[in-house]
Write a protein that binds this DNA or RNA. Structure first.
Length: 464
RNA sequence: UCUCCCUUAGCUCAGUUGGUUAGAGCAUCUGACUGUUAAUCAGAGGGUCCAAGGUUCAAGUCCUUGAGGGAGAGCCA
């Protein structure tokens, strides 16, 4: 018979009451009096702690002294209904194994609250807090839900390359990938770096987007998605940017911009609803501790249709609002954060999808509208965090795409394969990118993106 | 990269107009307590006031520079 259980199972298996089992976990707190001690154990499998009741007389004094906050222990005992309030079940300890003590005078985590900034500096230990246990359990469930959503729709999970030889997407500054001895970098006769001698025989970088490769696959498999790490070497110092983050990029053949919007909205609602259904305890904790409106906001997103309007219509709303903006509103300039926030948080009080942006402020691959001025772009704007999804219908017309590439001075040698898909069997298609950590910001109510990824990489910081 | 704010005990923070020996809560340690829930009660220990330089009889406090952190902006997801 199985004797070793996780707290998740203890919480969800009422029939275990009366049984003697073993729990391996870490000590959260200990409360002691002369004859009895109470130890709260947590193994991270679920938000709940398991209270262990210890008859002080039955155990070695030195052992009990080492059962302090942070210690790793295995406790065997009988599960009983709790005499005290605050928990339904508790365990009466028969034996205790101390795997590893945690010296209370140097262990940094205390019973009381710590600031998120301090916990960021001890990212190797912050998993052991209620907050980060909740955040990273939710992160897991969201990743799983993403695969489930697409699998339900028969989308194929595509692994786009992480090392890329093209700098064509222009999504941002890239990290170089090289095998050169940095003290002796080969040069050509005219003094430039000789990439032909490098590992790949050409200049290579870490990917800033898997979209272009995703399109190639979609134009054969019909519907695909990527979900992988993405790298931007921008010197961005904000609570919404990381140098290394995870991105989901679906790409669908035979989808126009409206199909694309429908999918994005369904996708986001599925994920938020999944969290509400499957991460309730963790969400409730985050709601109580950090953001009293969190669960209300999540429920509202699931229930309310997103507002859809064009960039031009949004311009009219902004102009007619009579509101003074730091950056003046004018057709043709990109929307600033303050404009997006006004639309989402003040005017519509709802999630918004904006479409048909001026072509000059959007990427080369977006499908050009007949008006000659706008492209079939779409951005999904969320309360609190702004742009959560950016996407578009792609330009499938070879001549128009080529003209745009020339216009923007993008080198053909990097793009020949992308252009060929428009030469052979080109069809209408669309896609978008969702920043995984931005989704998590929204779902968890955390305010800083560094607190929803285990080990954040930002300018001047790659610790751990 | 720009603007603003912060840096004092392990943690979170007070510290007045520049003025004697820099404080509190929590944590830690010691003791008390028959079932606790951020247990409670009593006591103890704990400081390079971020760094360097400067002004002054006197600097945690004022000035300059630097480092680290945060918020907002730009770039974007």
């Amino acid at each position: 018979m199985k004797a070793k259980y996780r707290i998740l199972e203890v919480v969800n298996t009422p029939s275990l009451v009366g049984k003697t089992i073993t729990i391996n976990a870490w000590v959260r707190t200990k409360r002691e009096s002369k004859n009895v001690a109470f130890v709260a154990l947590n193994d991270g499998t679920v938000f709940d702690n398991l209270q262990v009741v210890i008859d002080v007389q039955k155990f070695d004094e030195e052992l009990l002294k080492n059962i302090s906050t942070g210690a790793g222990v295995g406790v065997t005992g009988k599960l009983v209904e709790s005499q005290g309030k605050g928990q339904a079940l508790e365990m009466v300890a028969d034996s205790i194994v101390l795997y590893g003590p945690a010296d209370p005078t140097t262990y940094p985590l205390q019973k009381k609250g710590h600031s998120l900034e301090f916990l960021r500096e001890i990212a190797h230990l912050r998993f052991r807090t209620n907050t980060f246990g909740a955040v990273f359990r939710i992160r897991h469930h969201m990743a799983f839900a993403i695969h489930q959503f697409f699998d339900n729709k028969s989308f194929k999970y595509l692994h786009a390359p992480i090392i890329t030889g093209s700098d064509a997407e222009g999504a941002g500054e890239m990290f170089h990938v090289t095998n050169f001895d940095l003290d002796h970098i080969p040069r050509t006769e005219d003094g430039k770096i000789n990439f032909s001698e490098d590992f790949f025989g050409k200049e290579t970088n870490l990917t800033v987007s898997g979209q272009l490769e995703g399109e190639l696959a979609a134009l054969a498999l019909s519907e695909i998605y990527t979900f992988g790490p993405t790298f931007r070497a921008e010197n961005s110092n904000t609570s919404r940017h990381l140098a290394e983050f995870w991105m989901i990029e679906p790409e669908m053949a035979f989808y126009d911009i409206t199909d694309n919007m429908d999918l994005a909205e369904e996708f986001l609602k599925y994920l938020v609803n999944y969290a509400l259904q499957n991460c309730r305890k963790d969400l409730q904790f985050l709601n109580d501790m950090y953001d009293k409106e969190l669960i209300n906001r999540l429920e509202r997103v699931v229930q309310t249709p997103f507002v859809r309007l064009t960039y031009s219509q949004a311009m009219d709303v902004l102009l007619q609002s009579g509101k003074k903006f730091e950056f003046p509103v004018k057709w043709g300039v990109d929307l600033q954060s303050e404009h997006e926030r006004f639309l989402v948080e003040e005017h519509f009080k709802n999630s918004v999808i904006l479409t048909d942006y001026p072509r000059e402020i959007k990427a080369f691959y977006m499908k050009q509208n007949d008006d000659g001025k706008t492209v079939k772009a779409m951005d999904v704007l969320f309360p609190q965090i702004g742009e959560i999804i950016g996407g578009s219908q792609r330009e499938e017309d070879y001549d128009k795409l080529l003209a745009r590439i020339n216009e923007m001075g993008i080198p053909h040698k990097d793009m020949w394969w992308y252009l060929e898909t428009r030469k052979f069997g080109s069809v209408p298609h669309s896609g978008f990118g969702l920043g995984f950590e931005r989704l998590l910001l929204f779902v968890t109510g955390m305010k800083n993106i560094r607190d929803v990824i285990p080990f954040p990489r930002t300018p001047q910081n790659a610790e751990f």
